[in-house]
Design a protein around this nucleic acid. Sequence first.
DNA 1: CTTGATGCAAAGGATTTGCACAAAT
DNA 2: ATTTGTGCAAATCCTTTGCATCAAG
Lengths: 154, 154
Amino acid sequence: MKEDINSLNGKLSFFENLLYKMGYKSTGQRTEILKEFLLSDTHLSVEQLYEKLRPKDMGLATIYRNIKLFTDVGILKEINIDGNNYYEIICPDEDLLHIHFKCKNCGYIMDIDEDPLIHLITQLNKIIENDYDVQLSSTEIVYYGLCKNCKKNI
Amino acid sequence: MKEDINSLNGKLSFFENLLYKMGYKSTGQRTEILKEFLLSDTHLSVEQLYEKLRPKDMGLATIYRNIKLFTDVGILKEINIDGNNYYEIICPDEDLLHIHFKCKNCGYIMDIDEDPLIHLITQLNKIIENDYDVQLSSTEIVYYGLCKNCKKNI
DNA sequence: CTTGATGCAAAGGATTTGCACAAAT
DNA sequence: ATTTGTGCAAATCCTTTGCATCAAG
């Protein structure tokens, strides 16, 4: 059975291999944390991870340490929404654009991922690179507003 | 001598009047904090404010309390760049779009404020409002990359 | 005067670190 | 066997709060 790079196990071995190449050991805890990100496929807080992994006897410090390691190595990306940190897995074939929406009323946070936007943002980035003489590598956008439900009920 | 709304004193009285109308007292400390923002005209961290205002015997708690008050009232806006909080004054005639750039190499943070961008971002926002059925009220964008100098020297 | 604001120090929450033990190479 | 990783608890950093005092309306 050949492993697709896009399957859970394929992605998992990709990241573990990356860690190995950078001189880090592969441990059960690291695998568990990566699995959580791959299975949930959205941004997670340290608290959310701890809730899921504490039953497996993982310590909070281990979660913090590995999240920091993964972030340094480029496996995870830290995002901050309204003062709280969340982490997202960065899949290698995906671009470096992250858009989130937070409802100011109910607090719901949504990932926004749409192709038409990418074109516009690329235009935007070119303007900035030219006018400010910088080289952009990643973009974080957070929108604040009202979600579908709150829009109607306020 | 008539006070222009755009002069330092004009803006200062605008904000103090706003606070007054919302039932808050005008104090020397609040004026000092507002002045710092109006004079520097860029994002400031609590630490930076404290450095400037400690010599005037202002307590750190006062800075935190007033920054929170100003943020609640809509005078200041909190932005988070790479895990650190900064605050910016929101002038009433300005729109609700904030763009920052941080150099991944030297850490330099720059405010980006350009008209051509606003047009593109407005397009972007309309797409999101339609496709996700939300109502947007403000936008935070942070770009990461290399600044003019680091671009050359890396 | 009355109420709200300040400074200080103590408390809180999130994250990091020191250390002894356990797991991976 | 050696090195790195883990769990626990203590330490640290940033921010908030309680309380006595002070200043504004």
